[in-house]
């Protein structure tokens, strides 16, 4: 008699079903990964709507690309797509902001309204992450939500493992400092 399936076996069976375009397998995959991927998008964008949209795009990409998955770490595979999607989103946002700035510069009158905050901090961690260098914030968030090893992260970022480790170390230290400063400010 067969024993209960391990997590890896379950995941492999779900992926095999997804490759055959079975809807119930995609639904299971969404259940397995939606929270972590949403958390990753939410922490970096600071916006629930953006995180929701990116999550939707992510799973559509997964649907399109699942045929090219060759059995490497699935965490690494899905979060690589997520990281690329987030980079595209940032690039698009920068382009849009540039266009907006150019249009605003052409206006003859000064806009008296203060600029709207793009990042809505849901908690202290969000606030401190938004003050961190974007590259470090993205890297430590990716590491936490994807649960990837340093080796996998280094491979994804195409840099030596020592560089990745040093960046994660620096990012987490800086985040800790920011959190401590925030705590001190709260006490005052």
């Amino acid at each position: 008699m067969k024993g209960p399936m391990s997590q890896d076996e379950k995941l492999n069976s779900v992926i095999a079903g997804c490759k055959k375009k079975q809807p119930q397998c995609f639904e299971r995959l969404v259940d397995m990964y939606a929270s972590r991927c949403y958390g990753y998008f939410y922490r970096l964008s600071g916006n629930a709507d953006t995180a929701g949209d990116l999550l939707n795009e992510l799973f559509l990409k997964v649907y399109q690309k699942i045929g090219s998955y060759r059995g490497e770490s699935f965490n690494g595979w899905i979060f690589r797509i997520a990281a690329n999607l987030f980079s595209d989103y940032i690039r698009q946002k920068v382009r849009y902001k540039k266009l907006l700035d150019e249009k605003q510069a052409q206006q003859t009158y000064a806009d008296s309204d203060p600029p709207r905050r793009e990042h809505f901090a849901a908690d202290k961690l969000d606030l401190c992450l938004s003050r961190l260098e974007p590259e470090l914030a993205e890297l430590i968030t990716l590491r936490f939500y994807s649960q990837m090893s340093f080796k996998e992260l280094a491979k994804l970022r195409r840099e030596p493992i020592g560089t990745t480790l040093s960046k994660v170390h620096r990012g987490l230290n800086r985040l800790r400092e920011l959190m401590e400063n925030e705590n001190k400010n709260e006490k005052r």
Binding site: S35, I140, F144, G171, L172, R176
Partner: peptide, 18 residues
């Protein structure tokens, strides 16, 4: 130790759910 302390910071805050 510093990496673990940093990881704990993340873990302390509730992960957002869709």
């Amino acid at each position: 130790q510093q990496i673990q302390a940093g990881d704990k910071l993340f873990a302390q805050f509730k992960t957002h759910q869709p």
